[in-house]
C-alpha cells in the first residue's frame, strides 16, 4: 500500500496558561489516504479543532506542539519553516470554518479574495484570475457568478458565504480540505446542499477531507471513517458502518444511544451522566472513567489508575479502553 496522504502520530499540543497546562491535544494519531473522508467527532473542548490547527501549523502562543509528528505527502510539518509551511498550507491543505463570514475580509470583493488565493503559485495575471474566480464560483453552485464576483461578504447569505469559502479553498486545488464544523451555523436545507457539494467536489477532484463536527448525522452522510475524540485523545477510530453498527468505546456508545432517533418518542433518552472534564484538571487514568457506566459494572480498577493505550480488537478498528484489552 502507498503511503497515506497525511499521518499524524503521537501529537501533543499544550497551552501554557497562568492556571497551568491545558493539554488540549494529548496523544492523537491517525492517518488519511488520498480521496478519503475522515470525520473527527467530539463535543466542545475535546481537542478536534486544536488537532486541525496543529496539522495546518496554525498554533500560536501560549499554545505549542510539544511532541509528535505530522507528515503530509512525505514532508514533516512539525518544526518546518514558514517557507515550507507556506508551500503546503493554502495550496495543498486548505481549511474552511464554521463562521464563513468571519473568515472573509469584509472590505474586499469576493473576486479579489479568490484572486489572492490564486496569486500564490499559479502565476496567473489579473484578468485570468478574475475568469478563474468566476469559474470557481460557478463550480460551487453560486448562481450569477459574474455578478457575485464583484460583491462583498455582507451581501451574501450564510450558505453563500460558505460556498465562497469553499471556492477560495479550491483555488489551489488542494489535496486535503480540513472542514471545521462547516455546516453547524446553517439551516438543515442549506447544510444538505453544502454536504452534497463537498461530496461531489471530493469525488470529482480526488480530494481528501477531514470533517470536524459534533453531529453524528453529518458524519453518516459523508465520511468513510470516523475518529471519536474525548479529552484530547482519539478514543475510537473505525469505518462509518462499524461506528453505527458495532461501536466499542463506552463514550461512542453513549453518544449513539443518546440520539433521539434511538428511543421511542416522548420516552426519556439514554444519557451519558456528568459532563466533559475540565482540561486543566483531567482525571488520572482514562479520562472517561468518571462517566463510564460499563466500568462501574465491570468493577475494573485499572481505569482510574492508568490511561489505556489503543488496541485493535478488529481489523482497522482501534479503541482506547481497558474493557477491550
Amino acid at each position: 500500500m502507498t503511503e497515506p496522504l497525511l499521518s499524524v502520530e503521537g501529537l501533543r499540543t499544550h497551552f501554557f496558561v497562568d492556571a497551568g497546562v491545558v493539554k488540549a491535544v494529548d496523544g492523537v494519531g491517525f492517518h488519511i489516504r488520498r480521496g478519503e473522508v475522515v470525520g473527527l467527532v467530539g463535543e466542545s473542548g475535546c481537542g478536534k479543532t486544536v488537532t486541525s490547527l496543529s496539522i495546518a501549523g496554525l498554533i500560536e502562543s501560549p499554545g505549542r506542539i510539544v511532541e509528535g509528528s505530522v507528515r503530509f505527502d512525505g514532508t514533516e510539518l512539525v518544526g518546518a519553516s514558514e517557507r515550507v509551511l507556506n508551500t503546503v498550507r493554502g495550496p495543498r491543505i486548505a481549511m474552511i470554518f464554521q463562521q464563513p463570514r468571519a473568515s472573509l475580509d469584509p472590505v474586499m470583493s469576493v473576486g479579489r479574495q479568490i484572486g489572492q488565493a490564486l496569486k500564490s503559485g499559479t502565476g496567473m495575471d489579473r484578468s485570468a484570475r478574475r475568469r478563474r474566480a468566476v469559474e470557481l464560483l460557478d463550480r460551487v453552485g453560486i448562481s450569477d457568478p459574474d455578478r457575485r464576483v464583484r460583491e462583498y461578504p455582507h451581501q451574501l447569505s450564510g450558505g453563500m458565504a460558505q460556498r465562497v469559502m469553499i471556492a477560495i479553498a479550491l483555488a489551489g486545488e488542494p489535496d486535503l480540505l480540513i472542514a471545521d464544523e462547516p455546516t453547524t451555523a446553517l439551516d438543515v436545507t442549506v447544510q444538505a446542499q453544502i454536504l452534497e457539494l463537498l461530496r461531489e467536489l471530493q469525488s470529482a477532484n480526488g480530494m481528501a477531507v477531514i470533517l470536524i463536527t459534533h453531529d453524528l448525522g453529518v458524519i453518516a452522510e459523508i465520511a468513510d471513517r470516523a475518529a471519536v475524540m474525548y479529552a484530547g485523545r482519539i478514543v475510537e477510530e473505525c469505518s462509518i458502518s462499524e461506528l453505527y453498527d458495532a461501536p466499542l468505546h463506552p463514550y461512542t456508545l453513549g453518544l449513539m444511544e443518546s440520539r433521539p432517533a434511538a428511543s421511542r418518542s416522548k420516552s426519556r433518552l439514554r444519557v451519558i451522566p456528568g459532563s466533559v472534564p475540565v482540561p486543566l484538571d483531567l482525571p488520572v487514568g482514562c479520562s472517561f472513567a468518571p462517566r463510564c457506566a460499563p466500568r462501574v459494572e465491570s468493577g475494573l480498577t485499572v481505569c482510574t489508575e492508568q490511561a489505556p493505550d489503543p488496541v485493535s480488537p478488529r481489523d482497522g478498528h482501534h479503541v482506547r479502553c481497558w474493557l477491550h484489552g
Binding site: 450558505g159 438543515v188 436545507t189 442549506v190 452534497e196 448525522g217 462509518i240 458502518s241 453505527y244
Partner: peptide, 20 residues
C-alpha cells in the same frame, strides 16, 4: 429529506431545495 441520515446505510432520496 434534508435531515442527515440516522444511519450511513439509509440511502435516501433527497429533495434538494433550490436557493434559500
Amino acid at each position: 429529506s434534508a435531515v442527515p441520515a440516522d444511519h450511513p446505510a439509509a440511502a435516501r432520496q433527497r429533495i434538494v431545495l433550490r436557493g434559500e
